[in-house]
C-alpha cells in the first residue's frame, strides 16, 4: 500500500513540476499580452488600445504575480477549464478544441500501440527460437533499418507505395466519413507509427526470450513432452514480458511524438497537428493544454505499467 502511495505522490509531484515549468516558460519567454491582442499590445499611446490592454489584463489576470496566475490556471485546469483560444475568432474555449480532437489522437495512438504489440510478439517469438540463423539475422537487419528510418520519411514511403502506387490504402483522413471508414483511414497512419516501435519492442523481447529459453524451467517444460509452440507461448513468453511492458509504457512518448508528424502527413485533425498549428500561431493556451494532456497521459500510463507489472509477476505482489 505504501508503495502505491509513494508512486502516486511521485506522479503528482512530477505533474506539478511539469506544469509549473511549462507555464513559467510560456509566460516568461513569451508575451501573453501580445498573443492575446496582437500588435495592439504595443500601441500604448492610443487610448483605444490602452483600454483594450486594460481589459485584457483584467480578464486574464496579467497584473497578478506569476505564482498567482499559475495557481489560477491550475485550479481552472483541473476543473476542465483550459482557457480560451487566442487564434480563433470569438475566442472559443480550448476545451472545445480538445474535446473534438483528442479522441482522434487517442484512437490513433491506441491503434498504433496495439499494432506494435501484435507485430512485435510473434516476431520476437519467431526470431528468438531461431536465434543466430539466417532468418534471424535478416530480421535483425530489418529492425536496424526500421529504427533508423525517421517516421516522417517512413510515412512518405508507405503512403507512396501503399496508397499511391498500389492503391490499397486511403490517402487521407476525412473527418465527416462514417466511423468504419475513418478507422480504416487510420490504419496506415497507425502502421507508420507502429512499425519502428514494433522493431524496438521486438529486439527487446527477443533478447529477453533468449535469456528465458536458457532457463532450467524451459528444459523442464520440454521434458514434460510439451510441444515447441506450447513451451514458447505458455512457459517462455510470460516470464519474458517484464521489461517489454516497461518499454511499452515508456514508448508511449514516442508514439505521441510520432502521431504529431503522422497527423500532419495524413491530415488527421488531432491534438498533434493542432499542437503544430498553435505553435505556428503562437496560441499559448492551446500549446499549454496539449502539453499538459500529453504529460498527464504519459505519467498515468507509467503508473498503469507498474500495476500491470504486479499482475504479470506474482513475485512482486504482496
Amino acid at each position: 500500500m505504501r508503495f502505491w502511495l509513494q508512486r502516486v505522490a511521485m506522479a503528482v509531484l512530477l505533474l506539478l513540476s511539469v506544469s509549473a515549468l511549462t507555464f513559467g516558460a510560456m509566460n516568461i519567454l513569451g508575451d501573453p499580452l501580445f498573443n492575446i491582442l496582437g500588435p495592439v499590445a504595443g500601441d500604448v499611446n492610443n487610448p483605444d488600445s490602452v483600454k483594450l490592454i486594460e481589459k485584457a489584463k483584467a480578464e486574464f489576470d496579467l497584473d497578478e504575480p506569476l505564482v498567482v496566475r499559475y495557481g489560477l490556471w491550475l485550479s481552472d485546469f483541473v476543473r476542465g477549464d483550459m482557457g480560451v483560444q487566442f487564434s480563433s475568432d470569438g475566442q472559443p474555449p480550448v476545451s472545445d478544441l480538445i474535446k473534438e480532437r483528442l479522441p482522434r489522437t487517442a484512437t490513433l495512438v491506441l491503434l498504433a500501440q496495439l499494432m506494435a504489440i501484435v507485430i512485435a510478439i510473434p516476431w520476437a517469438l519467431a526470431t528468438a527460437s531461431r536465434a543466430g540463423k539466417l532468418s534471424d539475422r535478416i530480421s535483425t537487419m530489418n529492425t536496424f533499418f526500421l529504427v533508423a528510418m525517421p517516421n516522417f520519411a517512413l510515412a512518405i514511403i508507405l503512403k507512396f507505395v501503399l496508397s499511391i502506387k498500389l492503391g490499397w490504402m486511403p490517402l487521407t483522413y476525412v473527418a465527416n466519413d462514417p466511423l468504419s471508414s475513418r478507422l480504416w483511414q487510420m490504419v496506415l497512419p497507425a502502421l507508420t507509427i507502429a512499425l519502428p516501435v514494433a522493431a524496438v519492442f521486438q529486439r527487446l523481447l527477443r533478447t529477453d526470450l533468449i535469456t528465458t529459453l536458457q532457463q532450467d524451467f524451459i528444459l523442464m517444460a520440454r521434458a514434460k513432452g510439451l510441444s515447441r509452440r506450447r513451451v514458447l507461448f505458455r512457459h517462455a513468453l510470460r516470464p519474458s514480458l517484464f521489461s517489454f511492458i516497461t518499454v511499452v509504457g515508456l514508448n508511449t512518448g514516442a508514439l505521441i511524438g510520432g502521431s504529431i508528424v503522422v497527423e500532419t502527413i495524413f491530415r488527421i485533425p488531432g491534438i498533434g497537428s493542432s499542437l503544430v498549428e498553435s505553435v505556428l500561431r503562437e496560441d499559448f493556451p492551446v500549446v499549454l493544454a496539449i502539453v499538459m494532456i500529453v504529460a498527464v497521459a504519459f505519467v498515468l500510463i507509467n503508473l498503469l505499467v507498474d500495476i500491470l507489472y504486479s499482475i504479470i509477476d506474482p513475485r512482486v505482489r504482496r
Binding site: 524451467f217 521434458a223 514434460k224 513432452g225 510470460r238
Partner: peptide, 28 residues
C-alpha cells in the same frame, strides 16, 4: 525426431532436475 519424442517425454520417461529453485516456472 523431437516431435516423435514428445509423446515419450513426460509419459514414458521423466526427469527430475537438480535445482528446484530454477526448474519450476516462476509465474505459473
Amino acid at each position: 525426431s523431437t516431435k516423435e519424442m514428445q509423446s515419450v517425454w513426460g509419459r514414458e520417461m521423466a526427469m527430475i532436475f537438480q535445482d528446484p529453485m530454477t526448474s519450476l516456472n516462476p509465474v505459473m
